[in-house]
Design a protein around this nucleic acid. Structure first.
Lengths: 336, 336
DNA sequence: AGATGCTCTGAAAACGTTTCCATGGCTCAT
DNA sequence: ATGAGCCATGGAAACGTTTTCAGAGCATCT
């Protein structure tokens, strides 16, 4: 068996309380005594038992992160940001991946992290009111990333502002008729991205004294084939748009596909701007809005650590800025 | 404060030992008593204190995974495989990312997971003999994935054989001048992938009586832009290669980028074969070596769980096969 | 009828820490 | 010189479980 604090105490000729004091860097211990104890600790290779410490301090030194779709780049980047912050703290990171609604329900019902972690980071998953309640009842500090719930602290990106930038960029290129293709505006799970981005789209048009025209709005599904279909619909209008802003890159890919099918080229014949800046966007040359994914993770982790260390528990909302990455799909000015 | 086992016992009118027996599904408890206890547990919402349980059982129900470069698709896929297995077990997953040699040294010196986890999964990181020794001294079951050390159980893929297959494929298409672009051959962290794949490359050439020419070898960094640069260098040779084998897909993407820049097309003008079979490879039509990344993770996790549950501790070596996925980037036979 | 053995149960010990409290020695001001 | 106060220290309680041990109740066998 491993050595215990008693072994150290006996060998150093002190009481266990003194060893504990040395371990916890209490000021009230004679330098000479401290040195003796440290020497024995080193000699024995003693390591404090974590469970025992946890039992009495009621602190686990671990935080859990719950995220969906561990495989998608967005979440990876967020995870990376979180990890980079947590690695430099005294905390360890326990990871829970949620890929199915059943898993999700199971996690939030059983709260398997309860008592195993000091804090919680929830990425992207919207929470239902009873779940929020249960979480708060458990009195577990939690920070939401890329999602909001109740009055829990959140780190989000400025979807409205991002969409605004995207559309303003198109306007600056001389476009007057700008289509908007998005997924569901009121999805079951309560995501508000599409609605927010539409608001940014409308705000940009209005700010530049352009009309918001219903015929240019295409809200459907968050799938590439919807982008495809919506693009065809827009092209078939009597007065088709000269540019399309897609609420996410995947939709934009569908749009570009549709253009190609008609013998048109994104950038040359019709400007396209996406949102997300997926890896593929760079390869395809899609102008898009880049989200500071890693930074979101970092910020979320920092907020949580602050809450844990300083007891800062006031609900806060951190909105991170996004920026436009200009690529070939929107480089040419409008001919109109 | 949360309820304890005592509260449950008192309320159910039994001793704490009986509650514990119910909790641990001991057979020797009257169905009637069990029901009463369970009712109280449910009513109070009692949850056993984890630390206390850990203290007495000396079991943490957690396993740690140590991996480098959390951001790279390869490791993500492995992580995903691991997670999928661990999520269905009673274990939780603690994650340690190692990006720098200093971090690595620190981790393996302090073994911060000691006493916090029941087992260890080490991905890709090669271990030095003293580190192996320290690990074994700690008596912590460990499984290596994509790396080998001492006589610890390992799950690896056949990198030499995979590279051999890739190059042989190009040779079968009639290519004689085949470039090789890779990352560092002797990287800080001690990976051997690039070296192994180069060995496979050379072996294939030699087996088919083709010369290994230094001018066609480009070892640099494990980054896409290096693939880009290396491709340009190869194209600028007096006698450029007609095919390039990239040590990983990311490098291959860089190569394809470079070709496009020159107005060339992978597959038509120059054959390209990658390694990894990332999701993007399919989209882009890159011929590549498919590594069962997720499967590696799964297998590694399974081996570890088996070791933990059944005490299977014999050193084993699982070598997973790789196979070539032929796509557009290498479909045309060499014109030469 | 008594011994034996089985099933269910509770008291208490044990796990390895932190922390509270008491104590003894020392310094310092009076 | 003596009491007040501070510092370093050790003993012991406490944290919330699991597990050991002993015992009570009861059926079965001789």
């Amino acid at each position: 068996m491993a050595y215990t604090i008693k072994d150290v105490a006996k060998r150093a000729g002190v009481g266990i309380a003194t060893v504990s004091r040395v371990l916890n860097e209490s000021p009230n211990v004679l330098p000479e005594t401290r040195a003796r104890v440290l020497a024995v600790i080193d000699e024995l290779g003693y390591r404090p038992n974590h469970a025992a410490r946890q039992l009495v301090t009621a602190k686990t030194n671990a935080i859990a992160i719950i995220l969906p779709f561990l495989t998608r780049p967005f979440f990876i980047e967020v995870l990376r940001g979180i990890e980079s912050v947590v690695a430099n703290s005294e905390y360890q990171l326990i990871i829970f991946n949620v890929d199915s609604p059943e898993q999700r329900t199971r996690y939030f019902n059983t709260l398997p992290f309860l008592g195993r972690t000091d804090g919680l980071l929830i990425v992207s998953l919207p929470l239902a009111p009873p779940e929020i309640k249960r979480l708060q009842a458990a009195n577990l500090p939690a920070v939401m990333i890329d999602t909001q719930a109740g009055n829990l602290p959140s780190v989000v990106v400025d979807n409205v502002g991002g969409a605004f930038k995207a559309v303003e960029h198109l306007i600056s290129k001389g476009h007057q008729r700008i289509g908007f293709v998005s997924g569901q505006l009121e999805p079951d799970l309560g995501f508000t991205v599409n609605r927010d981005r539409q608001r940014g789209y409308e705000a940009a048009l209005t700010a530049h004294h352009l009309p918001v025209q219903a015929k240019y709005l295409r809200a459907g599904f968050d799938r590439r084939d919807w982008g495809h279909q919506a693009a065809l619909e827009l092209l078939d209008l009597a007065e088709p748009p000269s540019a399309i802003f897609a609420a996410n890159d995947d939709l934009a890919f569908g749009i570009i596909d549709a253009l190609r099918e008609r013998g048109l080229k994104a950038g040359d014949d019709l400007a396209v701007v996406g949102y997300d800046d997926l890896e593929m966007a760079q390869l395809i040359g899609l102008t898009t809005i880049h989200q500071p994914m890693e930074q979101m993770g970092r910020k979320g982790a920092e907020v949580l650590l602050a809450a844990l260390n300083e007891g800062t528990r006031r609900p806060t909302l951190h909105t991170l800025p996004v920026n436009l990455i200009e690529r070939a799909s929107s480089v040419k000015p409008s001919k109109a």
